[in-house]
Design a protein around this nucleic acid. Structure first.
Lengths: 188, 188
DNA sequence: TATTTCACTCAACAGGCGTTGACTCAACGA
DNA sequence: TCGTTGAGTCAACGCCTGTTGAGTGAAATA
């Protein structure tokens, strides 16, 4: 049923995928520095040298592992305004892809990850700011964004007892007024 | 005028201070992994071996550098209730000691820093929760705490353009309603 | 079938890391 | 004044890191 790829290309594709998956998981779990090429290769079931052959360097592998479609749109678009964020708030809180977690985990200690993070957060801020009225829209948008980052850090990365096991809708419910206070009363 | 310490003890005290200052600065700037013992020693103007002689291990040095008086009280006490946080909000945002920044910088990638962070944030949550009425006080307190962490991360560690150069009172002013939405309408 | 291609492994390199033990020499106590 | 203490240096250790180049054997090509 599936198209029969040449065996070699198929193998290559699969191996590349396994490396990327292992890399994302490890970067997300322990961050850039502690996720060694050897550990990633082991998790992918291959030789460390192959990682270099596929991606050139650890840094390049990281960038590839962290790269995302420049906003998968079922997220929040400018047209959905602020309610886009509020509506998918629990999704944002709970279902972040491994690539995002990898970036968040490393952004404070790995310079390149910090660059990626500033880009991604900057884009998010831009989108939000376009939907917020008033003078200090960008500042408000930045605060909203960092609130989400802070809560995500506590929930997914630090795994604070107070946030673990709490259903995402509950968090979203409590957070919504705080965010609305910053964005202004837009939609319902 | 000062009491004349024996020269040796005085030197020791000074050197230890210089090491700790250099360690705090570097841990805060680049995090635990990238702040090498050699770099810390160089910044303190001494030999790397002396760091070990003073603190035993890099890990022990980190713990010492990050340790704080268990709440210097001119911060927020339970008796000041939530307004304690809101009142000194700009202080919290701008004047964090190097030791706190060192902990925050490393908390996502260094396990021991994560432990310290969970302790410190847990204590903060406890204090806040005691001042928040209602069922989900601890959850609300945790969210308030992580909001502060998120904004601090964006401001001090990621140095987002949108937050850099913004006066702390401005940030505090915009943030206050959001926090109040979580804590409930306490004092003024 | 003979030849080339290429996914993959193996062994090793150079460099940086935390850490150690022997040493130096000025400050101290008797 | 003379032995002792201790702050500080120096050179080196073993380890782990990212990275490399030669080698292998099965799949592709002709």
């Amino acid at each position: 049923m599936g198209d029969r790829l040449p065996l070699r290309a198929e193998r290559r594709r699969r191996t590349e995928g396994r490396i990327l998956d292992a890399a994302r998981a490890l970067f997300a779990e322990v961050g850039y520095e502690r996720a060694t090429v050897r550990a990633i290769a082991k998790a992918a079931g291959i030789d460390p040298a192959l990682v270099m052959q596929y991606f050139g360097s650890k840094q390049a592998l990281f960038q590839e592992a962290v790269r995302m479609a420049p906003e998968p749109d079922p997220g929040l678009g400018a047209e959905e305004l602020v309610e886009g964020l509020l509506g998918t708030l629990d999704l944002k809180l709970g279902d972040l892809p491994q690539s995002s977690l990898a970036m968040l985990r490393s952004m404070l200690t790995h310079p390149e990850a910090a660059v990626s993070a500033r880009e991604a957060l900057g884009a998010q801020i831009d989108r939000l700011a376009a939907a917020i009225p008033g003078e200090d829209a960008r500042l408000r948008a930045a605060l909203v964004t960092m609130i989400m980052v802070g809560v995500t850090v506590g929930h997914q990365l630090l795994e604070l007892d107070e946030l673990r096991g709490v259903p995402q809708e509950e968090v979203a419910r409590l957070l919504r007024p705080s965010l609305r206070a910053l964005t202004g009363p837009e939609v319902s």
